[in-house]
Amino acid sequence: QGDIVVALYPYDGIHPDDLSFKKGEKMKVLEEHGEWWKAKSLLTKKEGFIPSNYVAKLN
């Protein structure tokens, strides 16, 4: 089961498979690959890669 993270900063995706998000948006982490994680937005239901240093895990 994936962790839920919250965006600390907004992110505008650079690549087509990036997931753009707004500050405060919550996402479910699907896979962790070093600095880039695959996640699904709980708001938009879209999936893509996010920079892990832009988010914090919720406990």
Rank of each mutant, 00 (worst) to 15 (best):
W36L: 08
H33G: 10
L42M: 09
Q1C: 15
E47I: 14
T44H: 04
I4S: 03
I4W: 08
L19S: 00
T44V: 02
G13M: 06
I14Q: 12
P16M: 08
K28P: 00
P51A: 02
E25L: 01
K57C: 09
Y54I: 06
I4G: 03
Y11V: 02
V5T: 02
L58F: 10
K28N: 06
T44R: 03
D12V: 15
G24F: 06
L30H: 03
W37V: 09
Y9H: 08
K45N: 14
E32R: 14
A56W: 09
G24T: 02
G13I: 03
T44E: 03
A39H: 01
N53M: 10
D17N: 13
N59W: 10
M27F: 12
G48A: 01
P10T: 14
Y11H: 05
I4D: 03
G34Y: 05
N53Q: 11
G2P: 09
T44I: 02
V6A: 04
P16Y: 08
K28C: 13
V55L: 04
V5F: 10
V6P: 00
S41E: 02
D12T: 15
H33E: 07
A56V: 15
M27L: 12
D18P: 02
N59V: 13
K46I: 07
E32C: 14
F49E: 03
S41T: 03
M27N: 00
S52E: 05
H15M: 08
E47A: 08
I50E: 01
F21E: 00
L43E: 10
L30G: 03
V29F: 04
W36G: 03
N59I: 13
D18L: 08
F49Q: 07
P51H: 05
Q1F: 13
Y54Q: 05
V6N: 02
M27Y: 02
H33D: 08
W37M: 15
A56Q: 13
P16V: 09
E35N: 13
V6M: 07
L8R: 06
I50V: 08
V29E: 00
S41I: 04
A56K: 14
E32H: 11
K40Q: 13
G24A: 04
L30T: 06
S52H: 09
T44K: 02
E47V: 14
A7W: 01
K45V: 05
K45C: 15
K23A: 11
K23M: 09
G13Q: 06
K22D: 08
E32L: 14
I14S: 10
G2K: 09
L8M: 08
Y9W: 12
K38L: 15
W37C: 09
I14H: 10
F21I: 03
Y54H: 09
H15D: 08
K28A: 10
M27P: 00
F49P: 01
S20I: 06
W36D: 02
P10R: 13
S41C: 05
L42S: 03
W37T: 08
E35A: 13
E25V: 02
N53I: 09
M27V: 02
W37P: 05
A7T: 03
Q1S: 12
K45R: 12
K46S: 07
F21L: 01
S41D: 02
V6C: 09
W36V: 10
M27G: 00
S52G: 07
D18R: 10
G48V: 00
P51F: 04
G34P: 05
I50T: 00
Y54F: 11
H15E: 07
G13T: 05
N59Q: 11
S20M: 06
F21S: 01
A56C: 15
I50N: 01
P10K: 12
Y11R: 07
E25T: 03
Y9I: 08
P10V: 07
F21P: 00
I50Q: 00
I50L: 05
W37Y: 15
D17T: 12
E32S: 13
S20G: 06
K28H: 09
H33V: 10
L19A: 02
K23L: 08
S52Y: 10
G48I: 01
P51D: 04
S41W: 02
L19H: 00
W37D: 02
D17Y: 13
I4V: 09
E25R: 02
E35G: 10
L42P: 01
E31G: 08
K38V: 11
E35H: 15
V5A: 07
G48T: 00
L8Y: 04
A39D: 00
K38E: 05
S41G: 02
K23N: 04
E35P: 12
L58M: 11
V5P: 00
V5K: 00
W36M: 10
G2E: 10
D3R: 13
K22I: 13
K57T: 09
Y9M: 11
Y11G: 00
P51C: 07
A7D: 00
G2I: 10
G48D: 00
L19N: 01
V29S: 01
E32Y: 15
A7P: 01
E47G: 04
E25D: 07
K45D: 14
D12M: 12
V55M: 05
E25I: 01
Y54R: 08
Y11N: 03
E35W: 14
P10W: 08
F49T: 07
V6G: 02
